[in-house]
Design a protein around this nucleic acid. Structure first.
Lengths: 225, 225
DNA sequence: TCTTTCAATAGACAGCCTGTCTTTCGCTGG
DNA sequence: CCAGCGAAAGACAGGCTGTCTATTGAAAGA
């Protein structure tokens, strides 16, 4: 007996919805109790779904977290935050990128924290989601450094490669969180600091900016001589 | 029957040695396979000890990692790295501190990575060891910022508190590892970058790094204590 | 020497978790 | 009406934690 053709559109829709519920449940769980161990069992219960359904949909624990990362990447606002491409000026483009990413970091802080830490302990545990996010960010940072070099906005003592390294360290979630959580600062304050840090780390000191350098006269006599 | 008095010195010595073997085993395990889950069972087997002995000695899994952190703190070289107090000049003191800490970070990178990540996921899981290390570092950073302020070496647009925040972010293990592992740079290169980043982030732009210290008398008793 | 005492050990147990399997249910859609 | 398939239920093996009890063996005292 030949198999009948099946469309199953309604079924597919409901599956999609179930998937959504599960992802929301993990997100919620990570947000509410980031320090507790997340068991698939619990997540499934929160989503009103059987544990075996989760395995069916995501394949494994890692697959679930991978999907969460991907979900965050597509819905969390990372896309908009990624490019500061709307600007002709490389400097302002960089600053815009940083300022755009901070609210995203802050909004999803707990969940990102868990994903990043899990990835540190075992990259496979999040199925490469964090790694992919990192690659995207690396590309973005490289692009920015390139543009800054082209517009001769880099410090004279830096190569473009050095700038990539420094920008990488100074614009990432880890750096953000050192200030936001580690020092209990507001997102706005952190944004200011990250912008300032990036500026001072890689940009020509003489160039004019959103933060004009302090008046040289003010310093004069303060030190040594 | 009255209890006899017991000294048990030899016993205590052997216990100490066993403890050492267990701690070495965890360290080794974390270093060799940082991405795999460390089970007490495995560690005990590596140390040639019963699992229950580990629980007896350290109380719990968390206690074991706490002890490891403490062990690292006392034997890993953090003490020497912590203070750049041998210098009268606040600037060079800061730089010396940073340069001293980098080799320690690099030497224990894998183990520190695991401890820090575990602490992020659940501070209790490492029994406060990481938190204590953080507090010590915070105190050190505050001290440096204070001295820089006193010697008028901070950027004019920064408060001492701001300097603490920035130094915190730029001198820590996380920042180090973003460059060392994240960008695959050598420890020496990272040290240079961290020094440069700290310098540019918080120090007066006009002063040379090699600038002679201001009037030594100004410091007075600051160091000895 | 010979006994006392207790640190160190071994091992059993309950409980939680993961990942895989088989079986059953019940809705969709021809 | 009923075939097909997505979803659920639940059993299972295996690994881990933390606790508890029983055992042992050697140092310390007499």
């Amino acid at each position: 007996m030949a198999t009948r053709k099946y469309e199953q559109r309604l079924r597919a829709d409901s599956a999609q919805e179930t998937r959504r519920r599960v992802l929301d449940a993990v997100y919620q769980r990570l947000r509410d109790a980031p320090t507790e161990q997340v068991s698939i069992e619990r997540v499934a219960a929160m989503a009103g779904v059987s544990r075996s359904t989760v395995y069916l949909m995501f394949g494994s624990r890692a697959g679930l977290f991978d999907a969460l990362g991907e979900d965050l990447r597509s819905r969390g606002g990372f896309d908009r935050a990624a490019d500061g491409a709307g600007h002709t000026d490389a400097r302002t483009g960089l600053m815009a990128s940083i300022r755009a990413s901070v609210p995203v970091f802050a909004a999803h802080r707990e969940v990102l924290r868990v994903l990043y830490s899990m990835a540190q302990l075992n990259p496979e545990a999040v199925g490469g989601a964090v790694q992919r996010m990192g690659e995207a960010r690396a590309a973005g940072v490289t692009w920015h450094a390139q543009r800054l070099a082209e517009q001769d906005a880099l410090r004279p003592d830096l190569t473009a490669a050095d700038a990539v390294h420094l920008l990488w360290a100074v614009t990432g979630f880890e750096f953000f969180d050192q200030l936001y959580t580690g020092r209990a600062l507001s997102a706005d304050t952190v944004a200011d600091m990250m912008v300032a840090a990036a500026e001072r780390a890689v940009l020509r000191p003489d160039g004019q900016n959103t933060t004009p350098p302090p008046n040289p006269d003010a310093l004069g006599l303060g030190l040594g001589e």
